[in-house]
């Protein structure tokens, strides 16, 4: 089943004097359950592409369908609702709410976005805490956790709404190599367990090999998409 379809997708940022073509005529399809990485140097358009797929930004031209919805046509509120139901995000800087505990951070989207009942929330959060190996840290606040632990919580938060797709923009950029590797393996494990599609961007050559499909971007153009070997 195809989850994401992009056709001639372009995004141009215009400032007063300069026009930046961040993504230029990109077309691709992503199958549900993929573990895909966009790779490329800084400024190649990885983040822009993830933002477009994540309905955080709108394409300048071309079409983009996510889970069967033409996301370019969604207004602010519709896009927020769509993200809340279908997409999970993992950020480079973890972006956990500092005033909430690990448990509450994971629970947040269920409370504020999906309005789930307390019993269901608790069950789901505890399952994910177990899955990411953070059960014993559930009452700690983000500033009491290490970078790797924060990212585990962020992954759990991204998955708690049972999204079709998780987008991770440079999820290992702020982590040491060993932790980065662990996080990518964790993401893959979660994909295997939950069959959620994971798309992440990275320019870290050490972890690129963990992706099953690698799409290379250069100057906003998709150069190739290939299945990784090994």
């Amino acid at each position: 089943m195809i989850l994401v379809v992009a056709q001639s997708l372009s995004k141009t940022y215009a400032t007063d004097s300069v026009e930046v073509k961040a993504v230029q005529g990109v077309s691709f399809e992503i199958t549900a359950g993929s573990f895909l990485s966009f790779v490329g140097p800084s400024g190649s358009g990885k983040t822009t592409l993830l933002n477009l797929i994540g309905c955080l930004d709108k394409p300048t031209s071309g079409s983009l369908t996510v889970a069967g919805v033409d996301v370019a046509r969604l207004d602010r509120a519709q896009a927020a609702a769509f993200r809340g139901e279908n997409i999970g995000f993992v950020f480079q800087s973890f972006n956990l709410m500092p005033v909430l505990t690990a448990f509450e951070n994971i629970e947040y989207p269920l409370v504020m976005v999906q309005n789930k009942l307390p019993g269901e929330r608790r069950t789901r959060v505890l399952e994910l805490l177990q899955a990411v190996g953070m059960s014993d840290q559930k009452n700690k606040f983000p500033d009491q956790l290490s970078g790797g632990q924060k990212q585990r919580i962020a992954i759990a938060r991204a998955l708690v709404t049972q999204p079709k797709l998780v987008l991770a923009d440079e999820p290992t950029a702020n982590l040491d190599h060993e932790t980065a590797y662990t996080i990518i393996r964790l993401m893959k494990k979660m994909r295997n367990d939950l069959n959620t599609t994971f798309i992440f961007s990275t320019h870290d050559t050490r972890i690129i090999g963990e992706a099953e499909i690698i799409c290379t971007l250069e100057d906003g153009k998709l150069v190739r998409c290939e299945e990784a070997h090994g």
Partner: peptide, 10 residues
Amino acid sequence: GTIAAIGTSP
């Protein structure tokens, strides 16, 4: 930005 991104309505 984070809470908006994860789907919190305006």
